[in-house]
Nucleic acid binder design. Structure first.
Lengths: 204, 204
DNA sequence: GTCTATACATCGATAGAC
DNA sequence: GTCTATCGATGTATAGAC
């Protein structure tokens, strides 16, 4: 998480921007160098190759994102409180990094398996051996807090409701003029809408 | 929609596969030629450049997809029936082309604006000047068929619930072993789950 | 129309001076 | 550590024979 020099920091920052925008294959070392205000040779001096630089950027990005994401997973308390906290934290974590989710989705479909590896590592470090949401849902149902529901379907719904606006951002903001999915007011409305929809669907 | 020669058909088919899998920048003309069983020179003979070939493929893909998608939009009848038909048609249209949604989302975020242009064209040809869903929702609310809801939020929720499993497919199938989002049984369960969730959220 | 051979451009990577 | 200059590989595009 720390940098051994200012130049290295500038490189990683520039590389993050370019890779997130263009993807691994679309990114150009020249573009990264330009944005960092240095030349291509220095990139190879600090990071041997494009592959390694990409790896570095990908891990850093996923690192911070997964960290915040997992805080949204922390259960405990009544289910309705969990819901409210999950939705709010999850949406905020995504909204803070426009483009990161699209990048991750695309890069994973390109064969990058590091994301899931990192995710599982972080989960393990918190004592989980899988995504805890289905278990939280199951437990709430057994306690009678919510009516019986397919836990996997509900988890997919919950995540989809939160993530989709940001994945479809370029389309939505085009076909719905005036809409900005990172606008604080939209975020607030979105959280409310998701909470109401899901709660209505599971409340006893 | 038709081809002027068998070779052209083979090219477009091969190019579709490669572009969808690798994206515009990741795709290689050599890979397309190999898959089509011809050589690179022929690609340029039929389509002057990679750009034009890509354009051709993109439009054909979006064409058929948007066509099916719009059939899902057709309203009329009671709202609950619209919901059921929309969810089923929309999910089927997406499931029939695994990878296409991820491709479209990524390519649009790369600056490709053709999708929205094509979408609006198709909408216009059906007599709409924008996505009709918010209006359908508004009308149903006015008729008292559903309780008052933010039409835009509901539309985003509805689409997100349907699309998300396919966008997140590589992640979901990895963290949920045994899951296959294109499996007929999953599709059936998914449709049911979405319908119940949304209907519970809007029924009077 | 289809092929081989090759030109031309771009990109990642390295050598070597400072 | 940082630069300029350049190499070698790869990718798109074209010339020309058949």
């Amino acid at each position: 998480m720390k940098y051994s020099s200012e130049t290295e920091r500038k490189i990683v920052e520039a590389a993050s921007t370019v890779f997130l925008e263009k993807g691994k294959t679309g990114a150009r070392m020249q573009a990264i160098a330009d944005r960092a205000g240095i030349n291509k040779a220095l990139l190879h001096y600090y990071f041997r190759s494009k592959d390694r630089l990409y790896q570095e950027v990908f891990e850093r990005q996923v690192e911070t994102f997964v960290g915040e994401m997992l805080r949204a997973f922390e259960g405990g308390g009544p289910f309705r409180a969990f819901l409210e906290s999950f939705i709010s934290n999850y949406i905020d974590a995504i909204a803070r990094r426009p483009g990161l989710v699209r990048f991750i989705v695309w890069e994973i479909s390109q064969g990058g398996n590091n994301f899931v590896k990192l995710l599982k590592m972080h989960l393990a470090s918190k004592g989980f051996n899988s995504i805890p949401i289905p278990d939280i849902i199951r437990a709430a149902a057994e306690r009678g807090e919510i009516r019986p529901t397919d836990p996997v379907q509900l988890m997919i719904s919950l995540m989809g409701l939160c993530v989709y606006p940001f994945i479809a951002q370029p389309i939505l903001e085009n076909i719905l003029p005036g809409l900005s999915v990172t606008d604080p007011q939209f975020l607030k409305q979105r959280k409310q809408a998701v909470l109401e929809l899901v709660w209505d669907g599971v409340k006893p």
